[in-house]
C-alpha cells in the first residue's frame, strides 16, 4: 500500500504533545481561501510546468513522470510558486514500511507521530496500518484533520489512534462553505463524537478579522463542546492568520491584533476551557 507524502518533519514541537515526527500527506477535499500550504491540496498532474523553473536542475519530466532529485534540491520552492494545480513535484508515493523506516530513525527521541496534510484521512487505511505498528513500538498516534472523514464509522483507525486534532474553521454553515467550498455538518458531528470518546485533544480556529465570524465560531464551538470538558480535556488553539504561503488574492487578508485574540481567548475561558493557546 502506498500513499502520497508531501514531507516528513523528523522533530516537530507544534503538532501535538511532546516531540513528534509529523507526516504530511498530499491532497485535501477543502480548498480554504486562507490555506497556508496550498501546495498540499492537489495531487501532481504531471504537467511539467515546474521543470524549467528549477534553478538547480533537480526536476525532470520523463515518460510522463516528474523526477525530483532530492540531493540537488535547494528548497527554494520555486516549483511550488509556479504550480498551476496547487500541488508539488516533491511528493513521494511512500509505502508504510518506508514511512516506518523514517520514524524509526527518530526513536527514541520522539514520543509519537502525527499524521497531517493536506488531509491525511484520505488515506485512512494507510494510516491504520502505520498506526498499528507504531503503537506496538510504544509511540502515540495523533491525527491532524479537517473532519471530512466520519470518525465514528472508522473503527479500525480509531482503535489505534490516540486522538484527533480537529480544525473547526467556521461554526456557521454558510460561512464554512464560503471559506472551504464544503459544508461543516460532518465536521461538527465529528467534534462532538470525538469529544465524547475522549479523543479530541485539540481544536483549532484560524482568525481573520472582518472576513470570518470569529467571535461566533469560538462562542458556538465552546458552547457545543463545553459539556464534554467534565470528562475530557480539550486544548483550544487560536491561530492568527498570517500571509506566509497564502495564495493571491487572499494574501492581503488582515492579520488579527492582540486585542481580538485576547477577546476570543476570554470567550473560550468563559465556557470552561482552561487550556487556550494563542499562536
Amino acid at each position: 500500500m502506498r500513499a502520497p507524502v508531501n514531507k516528513i518533519i523528523d522533530h516537530s514541537v507544534v503538532d501535538g504533545d511532546g516531540n513528534r515526527t509529523a507526516i504530511f500527506f498530499q491532497g485535501c477535499p477543502f480548498s480554504c481561501l486562507y490555506c497556508h500550504n496550498p501546495e498540499t491540496i492537489s495531487l501532481c498532474q504531471k504537467c511539467g510546468a515546474c521543470v524549467s523553473h528549477c534553478p538547480v536542475g533537480a526536476l525532470r519530466l520523463e515518460h510522463g513522470e516528474i523526477l525530483w532529485r532530492e540531493d540537488l534540491c535547494v528548497g527554494c520552492d520555486s516549483c511550488l510558486k509556479v504550480c498551476p494545480h496547487n500541488s508539488s513535484p516533491k511528493v513521494r508515493e511512500m509505502t508504510v514500511e518506508e514511512v516506518l523506516d523514517r520514524v524509526e530513525q527518530n526513536r527514541p527521541f520522539i514520543r509519537g507521530i502525527t499524521c497531517s496534510g493536506g488531509e491525511c484521512t484520505l488515506y485512512a487505511d494507510f494510516m491504520t496500518q502505520l498506526f498499528k505498528i507504531t503503537r506496538e513500538r510504544g509511540l502515540t498516534n495523533l491525527v491532524d484533520s479537517n473532519g471530512t472523514l466520519d470518525f465514528s464509522q472508522a473503527d479500525d483507525l480509531m482503535a489505534v489512534c490516540d486522538g484527533v486534532m480537529l480544525d473547526l474553521k467556521c461554526f456557521d454553515r454558510q460561512a464554512h462553505i464560503r471559506l472551504t467550498g464544503k459544508d461543516n455538518d460532518l465536521v461538527l458531528a465529528n467534534a462532538r463524537w470525538l469529544a465524547s470518546q475522549g479523543k479530541l485533544p485539540e481544536i483549532r480556529t484560524v482568525v481573520i478579522p472582518g472576513e470570518l465570524p470569529n467571535q461566533e465560531t469560538v462562542r458556538e464551538v465552546c458552547k457545543m463542546l463545553s459539556p464534554y470538558l467534565k470528562t475530557t480535556s480539550i486544548r483550544y488553539k487560536l491561530i492568527r492568520f498570517r500571509p506566509w504561503g497564502v495564495r493571491e488574492p487572499y494574501k492581503s487578508f488582515p492579520v488579527p491584533d492582540d486585542s481580538l485574540m485576547e477577546e476570543l481567548r476570554q470567550i473560550a475561558l468563559s465556557y470552561g476551557f482552561t487550556d487556550v493557546l494563542v499562536v
Binding site: H11, V13, V14, D17, G18, N19, R20, R107, P108, F109, I110, R111
Partner: peptide, 12 residues
C-alpha cells in the same frame, strides 16, 4: 514553547 518536547529528547 514546548518544554515537554525537549524533555522527550532528554529521555531519548
Amino acid at each position: 514553547r514546548n518544554p515537554a518536547a525537549i524533555l522527550d529528547i532528554i529521555k531519548g
